[in-house]
């Protein structure tokens, strides 16, 4: 990082931030909102997980070993699958494989295109770049996949009479499922397109903010941020499309009959 000053946060800073959450939780208790416990618990989890991640990434960067980078990414992928499945509601069993495949394909594309073609770090596996990139992509794809899967199966259940009618008229399973696929893709991508359009006006996205705070050149940070946002929107749509192609047939038998397990 060139030129700028860097302002670290000490333990008291963490405590102060935690106190803010405690205060918010107290207000929630007072107002009987019923989210105080969840808020506190999530904040503690976040603190621990982020600190752990920081320490681990620090270790991996210092170790400078491609295998360690790969191992970390594999662990992140596994966690991504687990979080997607726990967030997706009303989804049949056996979704882990398709979700993993969708995440792996988009992650490989992300690393190939963004890391190796656009940024070109040395060494090529530079953990300082690769690990945060993977994290940002996974964060977006995981929520898009969870929303997309939930919406798809929900929509297929809502449309059961329409699906049956279309099949009766000779529709293929794809034709009968298509309206549900479209609606779930749209919903899954909504937050991504929204953040793409509002970035720079209302919000300074997290990555750019971080780079600026860390003393980086704001224009450099802006370019970085755009590359990341663009790649993430494209790849999130891709991940959602892949998962839909892999799972839509789960609503049908091998004789193309409508049946949701």
């Amino acid at each position: 990082m060139n030129g700028g000053t860097y302002y670290p946060i000490d333990v008291w800073g963490l405590l102060a931030a935690m106190l803010m959450v405690v205060a918010a939780a107290a207000v929630s208790w007072r107002m009987r909102l019923g989210i105080g416990r969840t808020l506190l618990w999530s904040a503690c989890r976040a603190l621990l997980q982020l600190c752990a991640m920081g320490l681990i990434i620090g270790f991996v960067i210092r170790a400078d070993n491609p295998w360690l980078v790969a191992l970390l990414i594999v662990v992140m992928l596994g966690a991504g699958v687990q979080i997607t499945l726990s967030r997706a509601k009303g989804v049949p069993r056996g979704m882990a494989g398709p979700v993993l495949l969708a995440l792996v394909i988009t992650m490989l594309l992300m690393l190939t295109l963004v890391a190796e073609l656009i940024v070109r770090p040395t060494p090529w596996y530079s953990p300082q770049l690769v690990v945060p990139l993977t994290g940002m992509l996974l964060g977006n794809s995981v929520s898009a996949l969870a929303v997309g899967l939930t919406r798809f199966f929900e929509s297929m259940r809502e449309r059961r009479d329409e699906v049956q009618m279309m099949l009766a008229l000779g529709a293929t399973t794809w034709e009968a499922a298509r309206p549900s696929i479209v609606s779930s893709l749209r919903l899954g991508l909504l937050p991504t397109t929204a953040s793409l359009a509002s970035s720079g006006i209302v919000t300074i996205p997290g990555m750019m903010a971080g780079q600026v705070i860390a003393g980086g050149d704001p224009f450099d940070a802006a370019k970085y941020q755009f590359v990341i946002l663009a790649a993430i929107s494209a790849l999130t749509l891709l991940a959602d499309t892949i998962i839909m192609l892999l799972v839509y047939r789960r609503c049908f038998t091998d004789k193309d009959q409508y049946l949701i397990a």
């Binding site: 329409e162 009766a168 000779g170």
Partner: peptide, 19 residues
Amino acid sequence: TPQQWRTQVTYLPQQAILT
């Protein structure tokens, strides 16, 4: 194929669903 069969033997559900 199931689709070919259903164009010949066509089920018309009780509830009219018009898209």
